[in-house]
Design a protein around this nucleic acid. Structure first.
Lengths: 183, 183
DNA sequence: CGTAAAACGGTAGTGGCATCACCGTTTTGA
DNA sequence: TCAAAACGGTGATGCCACTACCGTTTTACG
């Protein structure tokens, strides 16, 4: 089997980067021709890489999620389970302003994209959630998928203010108080 | 000034009803031609009533919200502020299965529709929220708009299960415990 | 009733956009 | 070096929102 060609990899990366910028500026309804032009490739090449628009959206979601995942993993190191969970949850809901809006828009741009976003978020918050549960501080009956769903909900808040309040309310209800110490 | 013609009113109602059914079955991307056919009117008539698709979506949102508003107002009568709020909040998040999904899809079908849905929900939960605050049982710093935003968030949950859990968590964080009685 | 204003409905057309089909040209791994 | 793979331009198809006409029907009202 031949190794993948360099121009192929390069063009794919260019497309994803251009698409990410384009989606951020204009939303998911921007024309694919425009994205190809921004990437400096022909429209044919775009369709060779992403036969359907939703595939490109998924790739951009991957790109956006990678940064969040990095931050989340860093926040896990050397922190107690409660602090780690709070940090991961907050960061997942509230990346940089623009990224949050872009991620939310793309996640709502179709069923496939929606599920893909859900999976990505689950992979980000899963470890912190499991650790919180192991420490006995996670509210009973809550799964990592639930947490991911909550995160995605907050992304659709219509203002940063409302989102911040929602994060606060949810964290309060998710992390249970420390069990009383035996005297 | 002449009174509005009956056929006009009738056709408008038919369009909204047909659109509501069509959106419920096929989602907001269904073609307007198809909706006109279902309503038994010409496409020209559809565009005369709703020059833009988003206007039709807003009308359907109104239609859906009216039923919820009725339930909410009924739940307010003769109930204490806390019960009333819990009932209104829960019912707003969780109408009948189909309606919830339809409302959420339409609310996400454009910026105008989004803001319209927000206003509608605010008008539904506003009274119950104000009453809860007056009773001193609403968490400090939370406005009716925040509550409406929370409701809209829960509509985007990806499963009934996750939505139910979110409602529970949020209610716990929103209604403060009764202040201790003076001995 | 009679009538004119208003609403209707069919048909054709415009323009944007996703997606496909060719096909000659360029790049690249081996 | 050279064949496989990727590129890119151009034109076509089909769907859909939205517009323009224009002759026909319905309706409010005198």
């Amino acid at each position: 089997m031949r190794a993948p060609r360099r121009d192929q990899l390069r063009n794919r990366q260019r497309l994803v980067t251009a698409a990410r910028e384009a989606f951020t500026e204009q939303g998911p309804d921007i024309a694919l021709d425009e994205i190809a032009r921004r990437a400096g490739v022909g429209t044919t090449t775009l369709y060779r890489h992403f036969p359907e628009k939703e595939g490109l959206i998924e790739a951009v979601l991957d790109d956006l999620a990678a940064a969040v995942k990095d931050n989340a993993d860093r926040a896990m190191e050397g922190a107690d389970p409660v602090s780690a969970f709070r940090a991961v949850f907050t960061q997942s809901c509230d990346m940089s302003e623009r990224e949050t809006a872009t991620f939310a828009q793309l996640a709502g741009a179709g069923e496939r994209a929606d599920h893909h976003a859900q999976r990505l978020i689950t992979s980000v918050v899963g470890p912190a959630t499991d650790r919180l549960r192991t420490a006995g501080r996670l509210r009973a009956g809550i799964t990592a998928e639930d947490i991911a769903s909550f995160v995605r909900m907050t992304l659709t808040a219509d203002s940063d203010d409302a989102r911040a309040k929602a994060i606060h309310v949810m964290l309060d209800g998710l992390v249970t108080p420390e069990p009383a110490a035996v005297p």
